[in-house]
Amino acid sequence: MNTNVFSNTSAPVIIELKNIVKTYYFISHEIHALQGIDLKIRVGDFIAIAGSSGSGKSTLLNIISMLDTPTSGEVYCDGEDVCTMTDKVITRFRSKKVGLIFQNYNLIPVLNVLENVAFPLQIQSVKRSECLRKAKDILSQVGLSGHLEHRPAKLSGGQRQRVAIARALITEPEVVIADEPTAALDSKTGMEIIDLMRSLNESARTTFIFSTHDPRITSCVNNVLELMDGKLQYN
């Protein structure tokens, strides 16, 4: 099976999935969310995972982002087998390698924009002044220099998602994973967010993987992985 789904095969592999199966047990039922997924994601990829609701997009992204473990199969990130790591190690590993963007932004309401963005670095015990300096830089890249002191509640949906993107990027991760980042936004703002992610991908060669079920977005992204009933469709 060709697991190198996209063209740039010379770039190093950052994430590799081997025969990933994820089964949920609900009372007496078994729900097969993922059924034997093999996938290699390379540095600099910009990938959309498409599929209808219940196709397994979020489950796949959770496993790629090391938030969940597969029922069977192997997950490698930067060559390391993440399935064998302890929670403590995997948390530290994830915070360095992966940036996360959530559908509902998941910003911390008691922190302002600047503090929200700086937070992942502060968790890593980086000096506060350094965290804030970097956060300001990234916020200017996403066009939010004028909103540093605002609390998330005072921002629009598009602005909140930009803050979430900035927060995901502050640790300079190799991969940014976004679960339906445009689902809570109108189509225009959604496209702006995708454009922003693409420009960041091109400028810093940061790998972006995101899920969507919006055909307007998949139509303007070159690399689209189609998930159906927990299986990748290679077209």
Partner: peptide, 10 residues
């Protein structure tokens, strides 16, 4: 969950 996801230990 968000804090844990972005790197906060248990």
């Amino acid at each position: 969950g968000t804090m844990r996801a972005i790197g906060m230990q248990q």
